[in-house]
Amino acid sequence: MSDAAAIPKSPAAEVVTKIVNFARVSPGIVAGVAVLLFLLLASFLAPLPYDPVTPDPTSVLQPPSAQHIFGTDANGFDVFSRVVAAGRSDLPLALAGTLASLVIGLLVGLPLSVKSKWSEGFMRALDAFQSFPLIVLSVTIVSLTGNDIQNILYAIVIINGPRFIRLIRSEALAIREARFIEAAIATGARPRRVMFRHIMPNVIDVCLVQCSLTTANAVIVIAALNFLGIGVSPPTPTWGSMVQVGAQAISTGQWWIAIWPGVAIFIAIASLNMLANGIQRRVEGS
């Protein structure tokens, strides 16, 4: 490191050194973020060899080849173009669902950390709610409120909102015991200020872990609902609906239609889990 300090460097190189140093300490975070950024950038910017929503009826069920590197499906869609393009709807939706769950978790979980009979009752109700098979409940709600991709957002929030509430509440309960909260109250800070200025910044690091786990879960929920045909508007590709199309062909050996979007789902979830583990380790270490 002494060499690096001696030679003057351009700002860009300095950033690179910082990233490399960070990667030495937390390889999980850097790898996870890198893969995620790659997926996001690829789905929005990568040049597609074929139009993902225009089928080519002359090449149907082609195995992977030089023309179609991931093959084509029963309708003549190019699987590679669709796998890449599907990230445009799947990833932002997963992130939006996570963000909504986080906001709900903060808005409900922080006030609930004030001990009272009322908050105990609410947690009991939450227990009962969470003990339910939530994936089916969310399918019910999405299909009853209309077959719209935005409604998948509700499903993600229904499943993950309670987890955030629980996590944030229990963290906030522990932080409330700290001396600096006592000090803040003694200096005359109002409850709301204590909650958002003093408690909230201290729960954020735990929330970050939960955020990446939630995004991973959201990717699965979106894929599962799309697999069932919920929130899909046909030519637009999503990973879940592509796996569904491939499922019909897999018993007869056309593996490439279902496997590639499945691999995309796997990579997205694995990188998010890696990120979560990395942050978890940092939070525990500090």
Binding site: A216, G262, I265, F266, I269
Partner: peptide, 10 residues
């Protein structure tokens, strides 16, 4: 942990 069950089934 990273594989959806329906995909593993396929």
């Amino acid at each position: 942990q990273s594989v959806p069950d329906f995909f593993l089934a396929l």
